[in-house]
Design a protein around this nucleic acid. Structure first.
Lengths: 141, 141
DNA sequence: TATCACAATGGTTAGCATACTATTGTTGGC
DNA sequence: GCCAACAATAGTATGCTAACCATTGTGATA
């Protein structure tokens, strides 16, 4: 059973992404871009790129491109940081904030559809497992 | 907690892939390629490409490229299918089979390192959750 | 029954999105 | 002046859809 675990996680991730992409398609937003906005709004605006990348557990170059497209769509802003001219601070634009309602509603709907028949306790236990894995990974590094 | 779930799964998937890629790097094999070989050897050799793609829950074009590289490395073979001239049947080469031992040992080592402190029961419950999600996704389609 | 048109299926190619590493340029701090 | 840190760029890997062949299956009609 343990050996099935990594395959099973990967399958779920792919499937979830694909379905969310489908449902956000007409808004011109993908799963990764939406998720960037979620992390940004939850992590609090004003984060630097490095901080956000760390929060999302992706590498900086991956984030740079996501931000490029979000900025081009007018959904986020990169403002220069007054204390450190190397860094940029990230903010949702007004349009970005308004967009979020629509996006979040769709994402939430999909989430509940995919989690039908699964109890809060089961979810909680799974999330705990994920956290242990991330801890273990951290220690290995 | 439910709303954290999709993000947590995605983080684990990315991290796992990254770490496995690191450890297989010197053998010239990546997580996706290794995983293709695992599915092939477990699903039984002689599968067609479509059958394997279905088993792996990826799309056919994705598999095509993985097979292209594995074939080029001499790890698998695409043999014409006598019953249906459109189809190809897939086999591990001798080299591929020998390679598997090394690859599997490394993958297994990483797996146990990442799953340290997690019980069989917890793993089993998580896999059950994943299966329910895949079922729900199937029904939505 | 034979045959021909059309749909379905297996595999491929092309192009996009998103992950990575490696490298570079700029700035900050010692 | 040097080394570390932040962001960006280039190049590779692996997901996807769309569009394309070649082959197979189905079904209508002579």
């Amino acid at each position: 059973m343990r050996d099935q675990f990594p395959f099973a996680v990967a399958r779920v991730t792919r499937r979830w992404r694909k379905m969310l992409d489908e449902r956000l398609k007409d808004l011109g937003v993908t799963q990764a871009r939406w998720s960037t906005m979620v992390y940004l709004s939850k992590g609090g605006e004003g984060l630097t790129q490095r901080e956000l990348a760390c929060l999302m557990a992706i590498e900086n170059p991956t984030l740079v491109r996501l931000l490029d497209s979000l900025e081009q769509q007018g959904l986020i802003e990169r403002r220069p940081c007054p204390d450190d001219r190397r860094a940029r601070r990230l903010f949702l634009t007004q349009a970005g904030k308004e967009f979020m309602d629509d996006l979040s509603a769709r994402a939430e709907k999909l989430r509940e559809e995919l989690l039908v028949g699964i109890t809060d306790e089961e979810i909680e236990n799974s999330v705990k497992v994920f956290e242990k894995i991330m801890d273990n990974a951290q220690k290995l590094k």
